[in-house]
Amino acid sequence: MSQKLLDVENLTMKFGGLVAIDNLSFSADKDKITSIIGPNGAGKTTVFNCLTGFYKASAGSMFLNKENERLNLRKFSDFKVAQKAGVARTFQNIRLFPQMSVLENLMVAQHNKLMDASGFTILGLFNSPSFVKKEKEAVGISKYWLDIIGLTHRADDDAGDLPYGDQRKLEIVRAMCINPHLLCLDEPAAGLNAKESAELNKLLLFIKNEKKTGILLIEHDMSVVMEISDHVVVLNYGKKIFQGSAKETKNSPEVIEAYLGTEE
């Protein structure tokens, strides 16, 4: 069997009587961008919330295949999905730490690594050389990402003071700072103008090609979806109605029907 990065099998999520996701199966490749699209309320964000441990799925399994282990994401609860399995995510409404500086935002993302290095704070209190070294490395990683999104000059400003488009980019690189295997982006292009969308595409392609990180993308902005997706999964009412390449999706009658309705 081919090694996919993520295998979602028969995932079902019920809220009381409401079936938000109905027996959904799909997979995402390493170093590929997989888009999940669908009309409003199709259950896209719910899929993310199940994947990243914010919801506990009612049934099904989600396997993350690392080099030599196969983890069932259902077994991890909220923060452990990021900590142990390496699945990072961003949010539909940006969730930065607005009153902390840009650099601090990226440092918090490297918390677990630094926490170990600080010997549960005790070594850190005494400035042990190993901790100082690790902290410097972490600053280096943060600076690397800030250089990529061109925000190095604002590193010490409050994250909440950045323009909207920069906040989006910062949230994405913050998620990258946990060094994830899979990056889940919830509508990263929402509210961006054409130029910012183009920059976003560049950033996502960089992450895919250079970092070999699998990207799972929820998006409404079709210019983003069509331009960079390798694979598209279309949801409607919690069910998968289509999957294929971007081009195939564009021409699929089922998808057009889901979005525009049927011709009478």
Partner: peptide, 11 residues
């Protein structure tokens, strides 16, 4: 600042 963001970063 944001507990949910913390969880998403593995804190």
């Amino acid at each position: 600042e944001d507990e949910i963001a913390c969880k998403s970063l593995g804190v």
